[in-house]
Amino acid sequence: MALQLGEAMGIVMRTNAYLFYRAMVYGVLVAGVAVFLGFLALIGSVFGGGAAAVLFFLALFAGGFGFKLLREYVLYLLQAGHIALITEIVENGSLPAGISQTAWAKERVMSYFREVSVLALVDQLIKGVLTSLNRTLFNVMQAVPIPALEGLASIVQRIVTFSLTYIDESVIAYTFRTKNANVFDAAKSGILIYCQSWKPLLKNAVALTLLSYVFVVVTTIVFMVPFGAVALFLPPSWAFAKFALFVLALFLGISAKWILFDPVACTSTLLTFLKEAESTVPDPAWESRIEAVSDQFRTLKAKAAEMGQGRVNAVQP
């Protein structure tokens, strides 16, 4: 199992505009969380920790909805644009000369997906199909032999589910590589490629997911050192302020993963996926097997047929 982290890191570093864009988007998110936690600390010092705790849990509920909107209208386009750039480098060795990376990538994404809503739909369908496959057709415990977890299949399954993020991003990369204007059909072919090469792809994705956990732990500890020092100087009555510093350190650790580790992990999986795709022809025999276990795959096929028919009608006199 070769993760190709060195090559992946080298490719990611060549997409510096998108690294800055990611840092900016997540930096604004971190700043907002920091301001809100500061406000909660103030509320806790005035009204007590109970009042601050109520607001904190209400914010968790509202924040989940807000993050979903952010993901659907900003992060999908950001991630797809970054994948388009990385795919171009992998395929051609370089980016077109004299381009704006963000403008070029946005144009490439919109030329295939037309609207962010289409991109979001394709991504959600891919995720749904991959999840169904790994819960039904494939024996993930056999592909990811972790002796210490043999009796904890649910934990292994959860780790595998988290790892599918890197694989679904690789399927999106495959849609760019095929240059197929019917993105639903391209995604369908990408899923067939995964079915025919699922073991090495899943092993790499799971290994990267476990590394991401280590990365979060390390970066969180790094942030906890200065924040813990500040917390030591706070009076005992400021218990919620100390808790807020802990939460902020944890959020910064997770944000560092989003900004720094995820692009490298995505590129590593993408390299493996595209290499497998070079020697693998999508086998239509897999379609009936996948349809039997995945409603999302049936929807994907229907959307592919619908888009294909629409294009045929558009060129008819």
Rank of each mutant, 00 (worst) to 15 (best):
L210G: 07
P235F: 00
F261C: 08
L252R: 04
A285V: 12
T219H: 07
C266F: 12
M307G: 05
P235V: 05
S237D: 13
T269Y: 04
V264F: 00
F233G: 15
L274R: 02
E276V: 07
L270A: 03
T220H: 04
L248G: 06
L210K: 02
V216G: 06
A256S: 10
R289P: 10
W286L: 08
E287K: 09
K257N: 14
V222Q: 06
L201Y: 00
L271T: 06
F246D: 12
L211D: 10
I254E: 10
A265H: 00
T272H: 05
C266P: 00
N313C: 01
K203I: 09
A304V: 10
F233S: 15
A241D: 09
A244G: 06
E306D: 14
G253P: 12
V216L: 05
W238I: 00
T220W: 01
I259P: 12
V218I: 12
F261A: 11
R289Y: 10
K242M: 10
F227I: 08
V230M: 03
A231E: 10
F246G: 15
A305Q: 14
L208N: 08
F223Q: 13
L274I: 13
S212N: 11
S237W: 05
W286E: 15
L211R: 05
F240V: 13
P284N: 06
V315S: 08
E287C: 01
S268T: 10
C266K: 10
F215W: 11
R311K: 13
L260E: 08
P236E: 09
F215H: 08
L252H: 02
V206T: 12
S279K: 07
S255W: 02
A229T: 12
Q296Y: 15
S279M: 05
A205W: 04
Q296G: 00
T272Y: 01
N204F: 01
A239Y: 02
F227E: 10
P263W: 01
K257F: 06
G228N: 08
P284F: 05
S288D: 14
M307F: 02
V281K: 07
T280W: 00
F246K: 09
I290L: 05
S294D: 09
L234W: 03
S255H: 01
D262A: 00
A231I: 13
A244R: 03
W286N: 13
W286C: 09
V264K: 04
P282E: 07
S268R: 01
N313S: 15
K203F: 02
P282I: 02
A256K: 01
W238H: 13
K301W: 03
V293Q: 07
P282A: 02
I290N: 04
L211N: 04
E287Y: 03
K303I: 12
A285H: 10
L210R: 04
L202S: 03
I259V: 11
V312S: 13
K257D: 15
L270H: 03
V247G: 05
V217K: 03
